[in-house]
Amino acid sequence: MRKYLSEGLVMDYVSIGEKIRLVRNRLGLTQADLAKKLNVDPSTIAYYESGRRQISLEMLQKIANALGVELDYFLKEQEATATELPPVRKFIPLYDVNIRAGNGGFPDSLEPLRLLPVETVDADCAFVVHGRSMEPEINDGDIVLVRRVYPQDVLDGEIVVSMYENQFLVKRLYRDDGKIVLIADNDEYAPITVNPNERFEIIGKVVEVRHVPKRKRAKR
C-alpha cells in the first residue's frame, strides 16, 4: 500500500513498518514497550510493522518521537536496511518534568517523553526547561542534555539540574562557606541557598543546550 505525499516522500506502509521494526530492535524495545509509549495495544504495533494497517501522519510522528528519529526517515523512498539508520552514539530519555528555570515545579511525569538521539555528547538524560531564569543561556522550551556526576565533580559556576524539596531546578551551582547556592543567569531571580536539613540532590550537570525554535515548542 502506498500513498504519495510529495516528491521523494511516500507513505509506503510495508517499508515504514520495516523501518519501525529496525529502529525498535536497535533500541532494544519490544512491541509491547513501544505500544506503552504510544498508549496503544501491542497488536497495533504488530500490524504497523507488517504493513497490514495504514498509519496516519499524526501517529507516525508520535512513533518517530518515541523512537528518537526524524519523520522523514520513515517517508523517504529507500529500502529499509540497518546500515541506513540515522547515525547516533546512543539514545537518552527526554523528560518533560516541568522543570522551572525560575521558581521550580513538580514534574508532570517521570515517564520519558521520548528517546533523544545523541551523536557526540556524553549525556545520560535530557530535560525540557520551562521559565526565564537562565536566559539568555537557556530559554523557555529549550532542551538541556545532562550527564550524571558526583557532587564533588561539579565546579563552581557550572549549570546543574537539581531537585530541591521535590522541585526540579536548572541553575548555576556555587559553594559559599560550606553552603550550596543556586544562582540564575537572569538577575530578576533571587539566589537560592540550600537548607542542609532539606532534601537536595544534584541530578547532573548540563553538558549541552539545544535551543528549540518557538514554533516547534510543545504547547502547555
Score class of each variant (00 low, 15 high):
residue 6 S to L: 05
residue 32 A to L: 05
residue 82 A to I: 14
residue 60 L to T: 08
residue 154 V to H: 02
residue 130 H to A: 00
residue 107 P to T: 03
residue 95 Y to N: 03
residue 67 L to C: 02
residue 40 V to G: 08
residue 100 R to D: 11
residue 194 V to H: 03
residue 63 I to L: 00
residue 31 Q to E: 01
residue 133 S to R: 07
residue 40 V to D: 10
residue 107 P to Q: 00
residue 28 G to L: 00
residue 112 P to H: 03
residue 181 V to N: 10
residue 91 F to V: 09
residue 88 V to R: 09
residue 104 G to Q: 03
residue 200 F to W: 09
residue 100 R to W: 05
residue 103 N to I: 10
residue 211 H to I: 04
residue 150 Y to G: 15
residue 95 Y to D: 09
residue 117 P to V: 00
residue 40 V to R: 14
residue 76 K to F: 13
residue 188 E to T: 14
residue 129 V to N: 08
residue 153 D to E: 03
residue 188 E to N: 15
residue 72 D to Y: 08
residue 10 V to Y: 11
residue 89 R to K: 10
residue 28 G to C: 00
residue 125 C to W: 01
residue 89 R to E: 04
residue 82 A to L: 12
residue 199 R to F: 09
residue 131 G to I: 02
residue 41 D to W: 12
residue 89 R to W: 09
residue 192 I to G: 14
residue 103 N to Q: 11
residue 176 D to N: 14
residue 184 A to P: 15
residue 50 S to M: 13
residue 181 V to E: 13
residue 163 M to S: 12
residue 105 G to E: 09
residue 38 L to T: 11
residue 157 G to E: 08
residue 151 P to V: 01
residue 118 V to M: 01
residue 34 L to D: 00
residue 106 F to V: 15
residue 43 S to H: 10
residue 125 C to H: 04
residue 136 P to H: 05
residue 201 E to M: 05
residue 22 L to I: 03
residue 80 A to L: 04
residue 61 Q to H: 10
residue 214 K to L: 13
residue 73 Y to S: 02
residue 195 N to F: 08
residue 178 G to K: 13
residue 59 M to A: 13
residue 158 E to K: 01
residue 69 V to Q: 07
residue 100 R to N: 12
residue 209 V to C: 00
residue 155 L to G: 14
residue 83 T to M: 02
residue 11 M to N: 02
residue 13 Y to W: 01
residue 134 M to C: 05
residue 157 G to K: 06
residue 35 A to R: 12
residue 77 E to C: 07
residue 189 Y to C: 06
residue 5 L to K: 00
residue 210 R to C: 02
residue 73 Y to P: 10
residue 183 I to L: 05
residue 15 S to N: 12
residue 151 P to Q: 01
residue 49 E to S: 11
residue 34 L to T: 00
residue 210 R to L: 04
residue 74 F to L: 02
residue 13 Y to C: 08
residue 73 Y to N: 04
residue 30 T to S: 11
residue 124 D to H: 03
residue 207 V to Q: 07
residue 104 G to A: 11
residue 177 D to W: 02
residue 114 R to F: 11
residue 3 K to R: 10
residue 93 P to D: 03
residue 170 V to T: 03
residue 53 R to Q: 12
residue 96 D to V: 01
residue 29 L to A: 00
residue 93 P to I: 01
residue 16 I to L: 08
residue 50 S to R: 10
residue 119 E to Y: 07
residue 194 V to K: 05
residue 144 V to K: 00
residue 132 R to W: 12
residue 4 Y to G: 10
residue 157 G to Y: 07
residue 176 D to Y: 15
residue 45 I to Y: 04
residue 141 G to E: 05
residue 213 P to C: 04
residue 125 C to S: 06
residue 209 V to L: 02
residue 96 D to L: 02
residue 32 A to F: 06
residue 66 A to H: 04
